[in-house]
């Protein structure tokens, strides 16, 4: 017998994906944090030029972008969970979720602009 499925657009994404993504991005961000601490202790940048030089290295830019994209995805899963727990009216929840996604995409573009602009 097939059970009827009532899926809500603002509900959970019914699977392992989000749960796994949150953990993978967490490990990624922790690794980047470790890398950043090591780089800052080794190079000890103090002036604007030194910081600029550190963030001009290509692999550093790529690692930073991976970190920030991971952060956005991680934040989305987390905020979505929080909204599902505390905001119950569907229209309000959907509006807040859309706001979060738009804000996170905006942050990502802002980050790209800072590093490559």
């Amino acid at each position: 017998m097939v059970k009827p499925v009532h899926r809500v657009v603002t509900g959970a994404h019914y699977g392992l994906k989000d749960w796994l993504v949150q953990r993978i991005t967490a490990v990624l961000m922790a690794a980047y944090t470790g890398l950043l601490i090591i780089l800052i202790t080794v190079y000890q940048p103090e002036s604007h030029e030194e910081f600029k030089a550190l963030f001009s290295i290509q692999w550093m830019k790529i690692a930073s972008l991976l970190f920030f994209a991971g952060l956005c995805w991680h934040a989305w899963v987390g905020v979505r969970n929080v909204l599902m727990d505390y905001v119950h009216p569907m229209p309000v929840r959907l509006t807040l979720q859309i706001t979060c996604i738009v804000a996170l995409l905006g942050y990502l573009i802002w980050f790209l602009d800072i590093l490559w602009g």
């Binding site: 963030f55 934040a75 987390g78 802002w110 800072i114």
Partner: peptide
Amino acid sequence: GVLLFLPGIPLFLYGLQMLLQS
């Protein structure tokens, strides 16, 4: 987690921009 999202991320970006811009 919620506070790191807001105001955390925008403040972090603002700080990073000031750090690297000029």
